[in-house]
């Protein structure tokens, strides 16, 4: 039955496409080149619009409208509550606490991702033996699903039988076991390590691609000018890599803001709220306290923050690279 529905959707889509195309052909003698271009572009952009509409824009609109109501799973009242959710949130210490944790997590993770990713990319870009093999090997963590990564580290961090404590104590680095994920001091750091493990390879691939785009002649020229080693890296490689770094940074920031699986599986926001990121706060508000309206409001604030940040960031990076 659904198969039939799938087919009919296909059929309708192709019909629309056909008609649009026919329409374009019919009109072709009347339309200017500019107009034809616009119609062609619109047709090309149609699928992306449909998909974004179905998966993001329409639920986003409903979430935004929810954020202005008291809507809860316990009382389905959707009436306007004159910014009540926003006022409550911006006054609650919980929200700022979660925001702080999220910023710490995102900031630290992205910086480490970038530093390690850059180091890895530079090394893998050298003329080394088994380069192709090594490049593939380094990508492995990225191929492991996040939830699996979380499971592996849950086991590695296990206080009594986990391998991490065993290694650290038998090397004499510490004398008592640490409950990494149950310690208010360590839990966030432990999560960051897992995130870095999984994300660095992606950063590395992108930076590696960026490195390969830098033509060898530039290096030659710089070398003739007497630059070498660090100087070459600082004055040639880094500036040329900047656009790549900036877009990778943006992608990683946006992705890490979204990080839910690791927090939920590894610590569930604990111990005592020390890893309660915005994603966890949203989930708790929506599903443990059942306040969907307020949960959506967190999302809206979060969207606004990221949006403003990315506009400023892109502008700053663009201006800087024009120098």
């Amino acid at each position: 039955m659904v198969a039939r529905r799938g087919q009919s959707v296909e059929a309708v889509l192709s019909l629309i496409k056909k008609q649009t195309m026919d329409g374009v052909k019919d009109m072709s003698f009347r339309l200017s080149r500019q107009q034809k271009n616009m119609i062609f572009a619109a047709v090309l952009l149609l699928p992306v619009f449909i998909i974004m509409m179905l998966t993001i824009i329409s639920p986003l609109i409903s979430a935004i409208s929810l954020s202005f109501s008291d809507y809860s799973l316990m009382s389905p009242d959707r009436s306007w509550n004159s910014f009540g959710n926003y006022i409550e949130l911006l006054r609650s210490s919980e929200f700022y606490h979660s925001l702080k944790i999220t910023l710490t997590y995102v900031g630290t993770t992205v910086v480490i991702d970038l530093l390690l990713g850059l180091l890895m990319a530079v090394l893998l870009n050298r003329n080394i033996r088994m380069r192709r093999f090594l490049r593939s090997i380094f990508m492995i963590p990225w191929a492991i699903p996040t939830i699996v990564t979380a499971l592996i580290f849950l086991w590695i961090y296990q206080p009594d039988y986990g391998v991490l404590n065993y290694m650290l104590t038998s090397l004499g680095i510490m004398d008592t076991n640490i409950s990494w994920l149950q310690s208010m001091d360590w839990a966030l750091a432990a999560i960051i390590v897992v995130a870095v493990f999984r994300q660095t390879p992606l950063v590395c691939v992108m930076l590696l691609a960026g490195l390969q785009n830098i033509s060898a002649s530039l290096y030659e020229a710089a070398k003739i000018d007497g630059a070498s080693g660090w100087k070459l890296f600082l004055h040639v490689t880094l500036p040329l890599l900047k656009p790549v770094i900036s877009s990778v940074t943006l992608i990683m920031i946006v992705n890490n803001f979204q990080m839910f699986t690791l927090f939920f599986t590894l610590t569930n926001g604990g111990p005592a709220g020390s890893t309660s990121s915005l994603a966890i706060l949203t989930y708790e508000t929506a599903f443990s306290k059942y306040e969907l309206g307020k949960g959506s409001a967190i999302g809206v604030i979060w969207l606004a923050l990221l949006f403003v940040f990315s506009v400023l960031f892109t502008r700053y990076m663009n201006r800087n690279s024009e120098h």
Binding site: M52, P59, L60, A63, Q258, A279, I298, W302, L306
Partner: peptide, 24 residues
């Protein structure tokens, strides 16, 4: 605008998005 829209679409928490998606 389209570029920006595409990018910012990723910035809304999936956790909240999922509720709207479900009923839709």
């Amino acid at each position: 605008m389209i570029t920006l829209l595409l990018l910012s679409a990723q910035m809304f928490p999936t956790v909240t998005l999922v509720i709207g998606l479900f009923s839709q």
